[in-house]
C-alpha cells in the first residue's frame, strides 16, 4: 500500500459516494428524474479500475457516475447532466445513463445491457491495427454475462487477440433477478476462461481491484489478447431509484456492508499508519464542498433552449439537407 495512492483512492471513492447520496437526495426533491442508478457500495470497482486503466478507451454501462468521476469528469458537469441542464456533459440530452466525453476517451453510459461490449470490441480492433496497445476497458454487470452480445464479444476479442479488458461487476442481482437463477453458476469468470485469462477478485477492496487491472493492462499491452476480471461487489441501493431492493436479505446486506470499500480502506490505512488521521477529516470536508458546488452549479444552470431539440441529430453537413 502506497500512501499517495491510498489517499487518491479514498478521496475518489468518498467523492463518488457523496455524489451518489446527493444525487439520491436531489432525485427525491424532484430535481433529477428518469432512471437513476446509484453506485453506492461499488465504488472500489469504479475507482480502482480507472486509477489503473489511466490510458485507453473506456466503455461502460449506465451505472457510471462514479466511474466517470474516477476517469476525471468534473462532478459539476455530471450533476448538471442529471438535472437535465445544458451545461451537463451531454447538454442535458443524455441524462444519468449517458455520460459521454471523448476528450477522456470515455464512451459511456450505454443503457442497453451488454450492447456496449461489441462496440468496445470493435474499438479494440481499431486500436490494435493502429498499434495503440493501451487498448480498451469495458465494464458491465452480472446481468450482461447472459446476453448474446457478451458471448459474441468474448469470441471475437479472443479470436483476434484484441487488447481489451472485460471487467464484470458481479453484484449478484440483475434488477431483482439473482444471477444464480438464470446462470448455471454464480462465479462468472468461468464464462470467459476458455477464451482468455480469467480471474475473480474481491471487488470491495479497491487495492485488489487496482492490482488486478494493472496486471490485466500489462497483459493486453504485451499483445497477448483480452483479459477477463470478475469483481464480487454489492450495491447498497436498489437497481434504480424506482426499486427498493427488498428482494435481498438484511443478513446479506450486512455482510457486504461490513466489507465497505471506503470504511475498510480507511481502517487499513490507519492501522498501517500510512495516512495521517487528519487526512480523512480534511478530505471529507473537501468532498462535501465539491458536492455542494456541483449541486449549486447544476441548480443555477439554464435549461437547454428549445432550439436544441433538432441539434445533434446529424452532423453539420448533413443537417443542412435533412428535413
Amino acid at each position: 500500500m502506497n500512501s499517495a495512492r491510498v489517499k487518491t483512492f479514498y478521496y475518489l471513492m468518498k467523492l463518488g459516494r457523496e455524489f451518489e447520496l446527493a444525487a439520491k437526495e436531489q432525485y427525491m426533491q424532484g430535481n433529477i428524474a428518469g432512471f437513476l442508478h446509484l453506485d453506492i457500495g461499488q465504488e472500489a470497482c469504479s475507482v480502482g479500475t480507472m486509477q489503473a486503466f489511466d490510458k485507453g478507451d473506456v466503455f461502460t454501462h449506465y451505472r457510471e457516475h462514479v466511474l466517470a468521476i474516477a476517469r476525471g469528469m468534473d462532478p459539476k458537469l455530471i450533476m448538471a447532466e442529471l438535472f437535465g441542464k445544458v451545461t451537463g456533459v451531454s447538454k442535458g440530452k443524455g441524462g444519468s445513463m449517458h455520460l459521454f466525453e471523448p476528450k477522456l476517451d470515455f464512451y459511456g453510459g450505454d443503457a442497453i445491457v451488454a450492447a456496449h461490449l461489441p462496440i468496445a470490441t470493435g474499438c479494440a480492433y481499431a486500436r490494435k491495427i493502429e498499434g495503440e496497445m493501451a487498448g480498451v476497458f469495458a465494464i458491465f454487470g452480472d446481468g450482461a454475462t447472459n446476453a448474446g452480445a457478451f458471448f459474441e464479444s468474448l469470441n471475437i476479442a479472443a479470436a483476434w487477440k484484441l487488447p481489451i479488458i472485460f471487467f464484470c461487476e458481479n453484484n449478484y442481482y440483475a434488477i431483482g433477478t439473482r444471477i444464480g437463477w438464470v446462470s448455471p453458476f454464480e462465479e462468472l469468470y468461468h464464462k470467459a476462461r476458455h477464451y482468455m485469462p480469467s480471474t475473480r477478485i474481491n471487488g470491495m477492496d479497491v487495492c485488489e481491484v487496482y492490482e488486478a487491472v494493472m496486471k490485466a493492462k500489462e497483459h493486453i499491452e504485451e499483445g497477448l489478447g483480452p483479459y477477463f476480471i470478475e469483481a464480487e461487489t454489492y450495491r447498497y441501493e436498489g437497481h434504480s431509484m424506482s426499486d427498493n431492493g427488498k428482494y435481498r436479505s438484511e443478513e446479506e446486506m450486512e455482510i457486504f456492508k461490513s466489507r465497505d470499500p471506503i470504511e475498510n480502506l480507511k481502517k487499513e490505512a490507519l492501522k498501517l499508519g500510512i495516512v495521517e488521521p487528519e487526512y480523512f477529516e480534511e478530505t471529507n470536508k473537501k468532498v462535501a464542498k465539491e458536492i455542494q458546488e456541483a449541486i449549486e452549479f447544476a441548480a443555477n444552470s439554464p435549461e437547454p433552449d428549445l432550439s436544441e431539440l433538432y441539434e445533434d441529430v446529424y452532423c453539420k453537413e448533413c443537417t443542412n439537407v435533412i428535413p
Partner: peptide
Amino acid sequence: TPIAELSIVGNAIGMAIAGL
C-alpha cells in the same frame, strides 16, 4: 467476421469511435 450481425455492426461502431 463471424456470422454475428450484432457484432458486425457493434464492432463497426467501435471502429468508427476509434476514428476509422
